[in-house]
Amino acid sequence: MQELIQQFLDYLSVERGLAPNTIQAYTRDLKEFAAFLKEHGVVGVDKVTHKDVTEFMWSRKNKGIAANSISRGLVAIRIFFRFLLREQKIKQDPTSVLDSPKLWKCIPDVLGVAEVEKLITEPDTRDPLGIRDRAMLELLYATGARVSELINLNINDLNMDVGFVKCFGKGNKERIVPLGRKAQAALKVYIEKSRPGLIGKHLSNNGLFLSRLGKKMTRQMLWKLIKKYTRQARIKKEVTPHTLRHSFATHLLERGADLRVVQELLGHANISTTQIYTHVDKERLKMIHRKYHPRP
């Protein structure tokens, strides 16, 4: 089965042109699925049934794996079996009768506007790294950028004169997103006062956000910084880099932004992905109603 998985991954990379991050995620999902099948005595892809796939999904849910990760895993398995069917490795697709686990889909955590303000203003802007961190947080919230998009930004992806940033999303799709005045101001300070000291001898490095060693920031670095500033701001919620993306979308919709515009800003290929944020808005309204209405 491992050989077939590798053939499938090569197909995704070469023929479908999927993003490396997506292929890495699918690799993890399929290897975990293969291990599950082996553990349960299922030998050979032609022996897999829809029951095996369903039980694998439930096993992941029982381990506490996030609903979005479970859904992504099902997508990976579905595409894998369609590939096998097309290549005549199997005669029947066991996933053809399965529904997506919609009931498991969690409403994403979001921060209130005041909480976002506390988080963003937490870095010490008297320090070069604090100036960098403030600019990163401002940019995440101003644009709704994904973590991978932020850390891969180059200095020439910014157009400070007109206030736009060029983001490269999933599948290397390009989109142009407005920066906003506060993000622009924070970026200007960072580029003029902090970045020259960080880049040091690495003059050929075009990366926008640099570590203290003059190299591009990594996902892990950004994750740790956000955890640090969340603690300092005494925010009790579970905050990740993606929380600012969720908050960006939710706050826009709360203030009347059109769903299609938010879809474009987020770089979602399908509007159904963006629609989850309308549920966030409704849930918050219900919570406020229960809290403040005299007869909830």
Rank of each mutant, 00 (worst) to 15 (best):
G44H: 10
S247H: 00
P128H: 09
A257T: 08
Q92V: 15
T27P: 01
W104G: 06
Q220D: 14
N159R: 12
D10F: 13
D93I: 00
E238T: 14
T143Q: 01
I191E: 04
W58H: 15
L225V: 15
R134A: 11
R60C: 04
P94T: 13
Q263V: 08
T54D: 10
K61M: 15
L252T: 08
E32T: 07
K227Y: 14
R295E: 15
A35I: 12
A35S: 10
V177I: 14
A145T: 12
L252M: 13
G214W: 00
T218Y: 05
T49Q: 09
H268Y: 08
G256V: 06
L111M: 02
K173E: 09
L140W: 02
E39W: 11
L252D: 09
G163N: 02
V14M: 00
S247L: 06
V147M: 05
D93R: 00
K91R: 12
A35Y: 14
M221D: 14
E149V: 14
V75L: 05
K216P: 07
G41M: 03
T143G: 06
D124R: 10
Q88D: 15
V116I: 15
P128N: 10
E15A: 07
E192R: 13
A66K: 02
A186V: 06
Y26G: 02
F164R: 02
A186F: 01
G214M: 02
V116Q: 06
Y292M: 09
A257P: 01
L259V: 11
P101A: 14
N270M: 07
K31Y: 01
M287T: 11
A66S: 00
L30F: 04
V48P: 09
R132H: 04
W104S: 03
L253D: 03
Q7G: 09
S69F: 07
G180M: 05
R28K: 00
K201V: 11
F33Y: 07
E87P: 08
E87C: 06
H246G: 12
V110G: 13
P294T: 14
W223F: 08
S96T: 14
T22I: 07
L139M: 13
I90N: 03
